[in-house]
Design a protein around this nucleic acid. Structure first.
Lengths: 248, 248
DNA sequence: CCAAGTCGGTTCACTATTTGAACCGTTGTT
DNA sequence: AACAACGGTTCAAATAGTGAACCGACTTGG
């Protein structure tokens, strides 16, 4: 792996649950030597992507990341514009709703609004979703150009649960269905017990740039519920698309 | 410079004004060979810190940065909690107000609310402020432990304008004055024509973690205005501190 | 109260990764 | 049609990265 890749993989060890980590721990989890990890951390710290707590000497993500993210967000205000719509959809459906952005061949979860119910689906910001096997992924593929889809389907498809669709034929059918009705539906294709409805968000050029998905416990969803969630999801996705591309 | 440093310096070329840059341009400005720049960009893209616009083939900051910034922000919600207070202070004073976070020996501007007036001070997010010579810096030093201050004063101090204080004695006096009245005042110490009032924001342990500053054209500020700005700045800084440390 | 284990941090000979001049083919300008 | 600038690729040469061993400082538990 490149040195840069190693450095970034250090950054990726920090999570919402564990926002501060010590040197030895970082090195161990990244599979690096302590000396190497420290050198990389110092290089990152020089540019403020990493900070070190003076007392505990533990490391955490640095202010430079906030700065870079602000620059990106000003240019590409996906999360900022989508967040209120996601919240409304979560309140309307009473379920967890998550927003994903397409990047480097997969969907990256960038925002989540959790259901207010006790029995709810939990999704973490930062989770990477494959294009097959999740409602978000199917919705994304259904909105993509045919050549993109066929290119993706050529690669072997990993099964995440016993319900994951892994054959080209099953996926093509699911994609066609999603394209026809505007939203995708997936039950337990990625995690057991989770039912999801996905809808694609389109950019200015009509190509999909991300997705949103309503995630419920399977026990709470029948066909009628799914249909109403689907319509609400499509409405929300359209609203985000139009906000992004300047009303229209 | 380390490879990691070079990679991060590529990220830092993107600004609010120029959020998308081509390969040759990036290489030129970073002082790197095209091949090197490209390899680094690919490594960054693999981790989604960089994205490439498919059509123009230009590069921009990636979604992974938003993700990492969200993790940091959840753990250390400095900007999120401070932003509304900064806005109120800007409205109250009618001047540009900027928020800085201490990181790696300097203050990093992380948020700005511009004055509504035509003749106003413009500050950019991402600007790095030295601890001497800016109102923010003096306010920060005035709230720091004496040993931190003396350690900083030992290093040579760069002059940014003809008005920059560069002698240890002058700085010590300014720091003592700021400590006494709670806010610092600096006229044209960093940029000609700019008058600033700074106040420190304290963390849970009582140590300063950042500053805010009211920046006005010098022509608009007399002693009375400065005093009222100072009091407002102190109030705002205290409010941010208490919000950060959980009401108190 | 000491021994064992952990921590953050440092050193330096060894080696693998990075580097950049020269080279594509393509695109847009004159 | 000629030209220049673009994004991207190659490979021998050189530089930057690596990690086992070591340090002193804490923490733990018998």
């Amino acid at each position: 792996m490149s040195t840069v890749g190693k450095a970034v993989s250090l950054l990726e060890l920090f999570t919402l649950r564990e926002p501060e980590i010590g040197l030895s721990d970082l090195a161990r989890r990244a599979g690096l030597d302590k000396a190497t990890a420290r050198r990389l951390l110092m290089a990152l710290a020089k540019h403020r992507l990493i900070e070190q707590e003076p007392q505990s000497r533990r490391y955490r993500l640095g202010a430079g990341l906030s700065r870079l993210a602000r620059i990106r967000d000003a240019h590409f205000p996906f999360v900022r514009l989508a967040a209120p719509v996601i919240r409304d959809l979560s309140l309307e459906t009473g379920e967890t709703v998550h927003l994903s952005e397409f990047s480097a061949g997969a969907l990256l979860t960038v925002h989540v609004d959790l259901s207010g119910k006790a029995n709810r689906v939990n999704v973490d910001v930062g989770q990477v979703l494959p294009l097959h096997g999740t409602a978000s992924g199917i919705a994304f593929l259904a909105a993509s150009k045919p050549e993109t889809v066929s290119a993706y389907l050529e690669k072997p498809l990993e099964a995440f649960t016993a319900h994951t669709m892994t054959t080209t034929e099953a996926l093509a059918r699911a994609i066609a269905l999603a394209a026809a009705r505007g939203y995708s539906r997936s039950a337990q294709g990625y995690e057991e017990g989770v039912h999801s409805i996905g809808a694609a968000i389109l950019g200015a050029d009509g190509q999909p740039i991300g997705t949103l998905a309503v995630a419920s416990p399977v026990s709470r969803v029948d066909d009628a519920t799914a249909a109403s969630q689907g319509e609400a999801a499509v409405r929300a996705a359209r609203m985000i698309s139009t906000r992004l591309t300047g009303e229209a």
